[in-house]
Design a protein around this nucleic acid. Sequence first.
DNA 1: CTGAAAGCGCTAACAC
DNA 2: GTGTTAGCGCTTTCAG
Lengths: 348, 348
Amino acid sequence: MATLKDVAQRTGLGLGTVSRALSGHPNVRPETRRKVQEAARELGYSSNGLARALRRNRSYSVGLILPDLENEFYTTAASVVQRLLRDEGYRLLVSCNNNSSEVDAELLRSLMESRVDGIVHAPCTPEGADLVRAADPRVPVVEYARRSSARGVDSVIGDDERGAAEVVRHLVDLGHRRIAMVAGPPELSTTADRVRGFHDACARFGLPKRGCPVLHGPSYDARWGEAATRQILDRHPGVTAIFISGSRGALGALKAVRDRHVSVPRDLSLVGFLGPELLDVANPPLTRYVLPLEEMSTMTARLLLDRIQHPREQAAAEPNVMRFEGKLMVRESTAPPREHELPRSGGS
Amino acid sequence: MATLKDVAQRTGLGLGTVSRALSGHPNVRPETRRKVQEAARELGYSSNGLARALRRNRSYSVGLILPDLENEFYTTAASVVQRLLRDEGYRLLVSCNNNSSEVDAELLRSLMESRVDGIVHAPCTPEGADLVRAADPRVPVVEYARRSSARGVDSVIGDDERGAAEVVRHLVDLGHRRIAMVAGPPELSTTADRVRGFHDACARFGLPKRGCPVLHGPSYDARWGEAATRQILDRHPGVTAIFISGSRGALGALKAVRDRHVSVPRDLSLVGFLGPELLDVANPPLTRYVLPLEEMSTMTARLLLDRIQHPREQAAAEPNVMRFEGKLMVRESTAPPREHELPRSGGS
DNA sequence: CTGAAAGCGCTAACAC
DNA sequence: GTGTTAGCGCTTTCAG
């Protein structure tokens, strides 16, 4: 491929001038610039971004590490962040850690080698991007969706605790008193927050602790949602509502209840958390707690850009923790429990 | 950050030796290597990938350009390709052209500047990645899902024509004779293929041409699916089945029929194309033609890796065109048209 | 406004 | 085995 030198030779100008002409430096005679541009075009010149990045110590690329690239919850982030960063001239290195701490660490290392200007990270361990902070504390990191103990990183998260509480309140309002929660891996901050919200709300409403089991699982995927729902159906027959705290889990739950011929919401109420919009056309449309993903993603990108473009304040400013409230979208998968078809006083 | 030079000074060794030690070159005494590794660790050394890439003229990164990062159809590709490439040590630059030719061209240019070793491209123009071929024909390109006229590129696509024909056959088997097709932008190869398959099949089965309208739209999104469905309901009351040829369009169609209180499949049959698995829990579960996305994505990654790792044959070998067959998944959104509840001879 | 020259961090070729 | 050196292509002083 043609290099700057080629363009310089072609135009008879010096390297420096050509460089300046092409990168919009002001101190270039308009005609010179024109000539350079023409020569560049004729030669099919394409600036070597690697060389530029090396020289300027700035790669104009940022990394994005997500747990899952097929989950709406995260692809929204990928999409929004990509677009916003692109508008500012940044490229996006996207990768997926599958919630594996080994993979996560390797990806972070790889991003550091690429000398990215910043990182968006959905941590899957309590340490998060500590590795990055240690290697070069100047590289800004914004945590998305989850929090870790890494110091000096911003985070953009949902108000999981409050969301879980709202779910419980909705169910209690309908008359439920035995609610099961399907949770994810305990090491994720989101799981912890949601479980806390659930427990607190249950206590506040005086629900029987033993009637409200929490099932921790290995992941947040549909398979676990299905398995957990089956378990609840088998082992906790008294439960009248299930709260499924994962973005894909609800799909598994819908499958499980359909297989078992359990009618929702007649026999059982179902509430999802963060489920995709598609669940509006599910059978039945699913009541769920949703987070403002677009806003959160936008904020993530802005925060990162800010840190990248104003490294000065980076050192000084306190890390931001932006916690976004979601809202409960009541659909058709929740209804009063069967015992409540009659006034409360009447027993079963 | 620490550089090779720092490690060299620390160990008292030469630059070359340190470089070799760290990058696994055989000609290094084991003990030397150990010492180097230790020093590197102590200094928190992280190899500068930009410098390496510049020097070796190989960036170990590849680009992926998709029309939409929130659509399951494409995120599957992103996910699979990312994983497979990562396993081979490549990073993935992901971006989205939104089916805009300007954006697409700019993204391709940006990837060339990044000196990616290869590109996966879902073209949104007939020219596709011609730009890349012109700039540097050695950079391998694999087209995904769609085809362009760019020369010397491999492509991995679905058998859209056949799929559309299968959809028609299914509906005809049920007794439908007036089938509307909701299509996408005419400039996409997929649209053309599907429409051709649709028309051919209609002709083959002797369906009335005027009873089988094809609606071309500006995109393949849910909004267009909804609008088109409404249009059909309004202007083509004779139609008994709608074939929605887009991965998100079916969601819009479901919304439209629900709003209009049209009962599916009693009043109207609905068939989707490439819709997400989630549609299995839709109301009603949607009959649709699906492509083996995982296989297709895997093939895409393999093809690209092959081209990258064996540049020799690149020049020689003919471009591959891998066309994958899908299959029709019959669910509950299709049924015989109302007139057919009685034997055929009976009129309306 | 333009040219010359230094050097970003690394690898690979060549000497020893 | 190891050290030295020349550059990969670019930006950015510093002179003029």
